[in-house]
Design a protein around this nucleic acid. Structure first.
Lengths: 249, 249
DNA sequence: CGATGTGTTGACATGAATCAAAGAAAGTGG
DNA sequence: CCACTTTCTTTGATTCATGTCAACACATCG
C-alpha cells in the first residue's frame, strides 16, 4: 500500500529550514494571512523572523511526533496534515491552502505530519521566535485564535462525516467542500462547477477514511448517473449540484 | 440582579440563561479554567458578566445551527458536543469536563449542540460581552488559544480513530482515553484502572461512530478475554492495560 | 517502446449494520 | 415492598456495504 511513508524518516535532507529572506510588504497573502493584523512596522519586525521556503510535491515539512521547530504561512500550493498508525494506515486530518497557517504554536511536538501535495511555497518561522512575537502582539494572536476556532469547527464537522456517513455521502460531501475551497482560491467569484483537484484517488480516500477502490467506484458510479464528469484524472465537473447536495446529506 | 441574558430556544423550556450570580474568587475551577489568567481585579470584572447555571442531565444548552448567544465554563458535570444529520444520525464530536470551555466565541452560530450528560453546573457569559472582554484581555485570549489548539489536536487525533480504526481498536482507544481524562478529574494521582463512565452504551457508540450493538459486543468480548471487568452498567475496570494499549494501536 | 505509477473494474470475503427478541436495571405508583 | 412499565443492554440471525485481493487499462516518461 503506502509504504513510502513508513520508510522516510526525519533524515530527509530536503528539509533545511533556510530559504530566501521574506519581504512581507509584497507578500501574495499579505491581506489574507494572519499577518493582515499587523501594521507596517510590526510587519517589518515579523519579516525579519520569516524565511521563504519552497517545498516540492511529496516532501514533508513537519513529522508527526517530532519536535516541531517551525510554524509557517502557506504562500502557494496545497499541503496535507496526516496522522498515521504504526501499520501504515493514514488519515488526512486537514488540507491547507495559501494564506492558511501551519504548525503548532505553543506546543512541544507536532501532532501530525505536514506534507506538500503540490509544489508549494511557505513562509517559515522559528517556533520559539514566533511564539514570543505572537505573545507580544494581541492582534496577531486574535487572528490566530479565530483561525484555530474555524479549523476546529471544520475538523468537528469532518468527524461527523468520518463517523457516520456512507461512502456515497462522503464522496459527495468531499466534492462539494472542495469545489468551495478551491474556488475561494482563484479570485473568481462564486463556486465553480468544474475544478482540478490537487490530489489523486489514494489521497481522496485518505481524507474520507475509505479505500482507493471504494472511492474510485463511487466516482465512476456518479459519472454513470450523470451527476458529474471526469475529464481527466484530477478534473471534476459537477453537473447536478442540487442532487449532489441531496446526496451529501 | 439576574437579567435574563437571552431567552427563546427551541422546545426546551428548561433553558433560560439566568441563574445565580458568580463568585469567581471561590470558584472550584478558578485555577484550571481560562480564568486562571486573570488577576483579582479582572476577575471581579468578569465575575459581573458571568452567571452560574445548573443544567439537568439530558438537557441541551446550545443548539446546532442556532445563534449562539452564550459561552461558558464548565464547573461540574460532563457535557457532549453533538453534530446531527437530518435523518437523526448523531456524532459526538467532543466531551467536556469541569474547567473546560464551551461555546463558540467570535462566531455567529453554534456549529454543534451542547447537551449535559450528567447533571452539570456551568458559568455562563453572554457571548458578545465575553468577546469584548476577551479582546481587551490578551492573557485570557492566550489561554483560550492554547485550549483551542489542544482541542484541535484532540479532534484531529479522533479523526484518525473514526476514519481508520476497527471497532475493536476504537473501543480500546476510547477506554484508555477515558481512564486518563476521568482520573485527571478526581485529584487522585495517575491513571486509574477502574472508573465510572458518565455515559451509556449508545453514547459510547455515538462517540466512536459505531452502533450500540457493536459497542456492546466488543465490551462483552473484552470481558470474556479477561481484558476488563464490567461491575455495573457504567463501571469499567481495565485489567490488562498493556494489552489494551496494544489493541488500541 | 517497455517501464512505472495510478486508476478502474471484477470476484470474493468479512466486519459491522440491521433486524429481532430476550434479559437486566431502574423507575413508578399502589 | 411488590407488580408494572420503561429504558437500557445483551445476544442471536442475517444482510449489506465496504474492504481485500487480483487483474487489467491507461497515462506518462525515460
Amino acid at each position: 500500500m503506502t509504504a513510502a511513508i513508513i520508510v522516510a524518516l526525519p533524515t530527509d535532507a530536503a528539509v533545511d529550514y533556510g530559504g530566501g529572506v521574506t519581504d512581507c510588504a509584497s507578500c501574495v497573502v499579505r491581506n489574507r494571512a494572519i499577518c493582515a493584523s499587523l501594521d507596517a512596522d510590526e510587519l517589518a519586525l515579523l519579516g525579519k523572523l520569516g524565511r521563504n521556503h519552497r517545498v516540492k510535491a511529496g516532501h514533508t515539512l513537519l513529522w508527526e511526533g517530532d519536535d516541531a521547530p517551525v510554524v509557517a504561512n502557506v504562500l502557494e500550493g496545497v499541503l496535507k496534515l496526516v496522522v498515521a498508525a504504526a501499520d501504515g494506515r493514514e488519515q488526512i486530518v486537514g488540507v491547507v491552502f495559501p494564506s492558511d497557517f501551519i504548525g503548532r504554536p505553543f506546543g512541544k511536538e507536532s501532532p501530525y505530519s505536514v506534507t506538500a501535495m503540490t509544489d508549494a511555497e511557505v513562509c517559515i518561522f522559528n517556533r520559539k521566535s514566533f511564539d514570543d512575537f505572537a505573545s507580544a502582539h494581541p492582534d496577531l494572536q486574535h487572528k490566530l485564535l479565530r483561525r484555530t476556532l474555524d479549523e476546529l469547527d471544520r475538523a468537528r464537522h469532518w468527524m461527523m462525516l468520518l463517523g457516520r456517513k456512507s461512502a456515497e455521502e462522503k464522496v459527495a460531501s468531499f466534492l462539494l467542500e472542495m469545489s468551495e475551497r478551491l474556488s475561494g482560491q482563484g479570485c473568481g467569484a462564486g463556486t465553480q462547477s468544474g475544478f482540478e483537484l490537487p490530489f489523486g484517488r489514494q489521497q481522496i480516500a485518505d481524507i474520507l477514511g475509505l479505500t482507493i477502490e471504494t472511492t474510485s467506484r463511487q466516482l465512476t458510479r456518479m459519472r454513470a448517473e450523470g451527476l458529474l464528469d471526469l475529464p481527466s484524472r484530477r478534473e471534476i465537473v459537477i453537473h447536478d449540484r442540487a442532487a449532489m447536495e441531496a446526496i451529501a446529506g
